[in-house]
Design a protein around this nucleic acid. Structure first.
Lengths: 194, 194
DNA sequence: GGCTCTAACCTAAAGCCCCTAGGAAGAGCG
DNA sequence: CGCTCTTCCTAGGGGCTTTAGGTTAGAGCC
């Protein structure tokens, strides 16, 4: 009987593909084993548990996503960078709903420690805001708002939360325009205030 | 053998409490039955399926939430209303994480049809923005951005997504301030443009 | 080609969950 | 009291996760 030739990488990649097809919650070790033509228990040689598999999917998707974003923002700054970042973000989230959902779970700290993707994400995000010339704590506050807006938008859109007939792409472009204004007009923390 | 005296309402309410305790995904018909001292199958007299239960939880939570928000914004307008809306929103999401998660699922259209909560939510949301004097399609775009920002913020915060040492409450207050500015400075659609 | 050894993969089984079908027993009503 | 409706039950099928333990394919080495 020939072997399927599984490795952690192949298992996680297949899980990510499956997630995009049937949704993050539809990724089950049984379904994955079925796809490989293998018994459920066999996957435990490559992955510690379902939780472990999900964490690995999250890291994979997070790394993929920040790579796309990095390419998009390269060589741009200010509003151009913001638009590119936002576009790449939403594009990834919509093209890979299962992978994107994976990026939103809480990940085992043991795995997260040696993942450069997170540091990269922070670097690129803060770098994108350089042109707006914000100092801490405003910078962190702005990053949080941006992340929230981007994530919330994609989550609501993917979940069918936008019922109005208004075209979502146009709405999104407007939202990004508005966020650009927000960053320019950011209500800065006063020297000794608050 | 004394009866537990279940009704749809009691079952759904208990499910919502359970969700706040163990998380939305932890709400299982088995766990719920255990809590009532009843067998799993008994719950099917009150609820069609797990999916049905979840949909009902979503409607319950949605109604509760918009009630809190309505109280908060009553008698306020402009920035005051925005701050009150935002505060009530986040407070509910953090105090009732399971219920809040329920509000984000896709709900069976059959149940949603006769729920006044959704219409109420739209009315209150659009009403809150009246002072900013936006016309369509800007109004819808602004509502979408606000919903996205609020939801994204609560989702990220509840999911432990904010790692920086910066206090989240202060960050949130700042974000709401910034969104107020965003609404005031909204990049309006030109008469015949775009 | 044989040998060894480390995987990769298997069977078996326990435990939890969803859901259906059909039966029994409370509670209210005539 | 007897009727009926609903609540709750037992029984059972099927899916998923996970552990424990046994085989065997296949790479590397003589």
């Amino acid at each position: 009987m020939p072997r399927a030739g599984l490795t952690v990488e192949r298992v996680v990649a297949a899980a990510a593909d499956l997630a995009d097809e049937v949704g993050f919650d539809g990724v089950t070790l049984s379904a994955l084993a079925r796809r490989f033509g293998v018994k459920d228990a066999s996957l435990y040689s490559h992955v510690r548990s379902l939780r472990d598999l999900r964490s690995r999917m999250a890291l994979l998707a997070g790394a993929e996503m920040i790579d796309r974003i990095a390419v998009a923002v390269a060589g741009r700054s200010g509003k151009e960078a913001l638009v590119a970042f936002a576009g790449a973000y939403r594009e990834y989230a919509l093209a890979h709903p299962g992978r994107y959902a994976a990026t939103q779970i809480r990940v085992d700290q043991s795995l997260v420690a040696d993942s450069p993707a997170l540091r990269r994400t922070a670097e690129i995000t803060y770098g994108m805001l350089r042109a707006y010339d914000l100092d801490e704590p405003d910078l962190t506050d702005a990053v949080r708002l941006l992340r929230a807006a981007f994530h919330g938008y994609c989550a609501l859109e993917a979940g069918g939360g936008f019922g109005a007939p208004r075209d979502v792409q146009q709405s999104w472009d407007r939202a990004v325009d508005a966020l650009h204004v927000t960053l320019e007009q950011w209500p800065r923390t006063k020297e000794r205030g608050d």
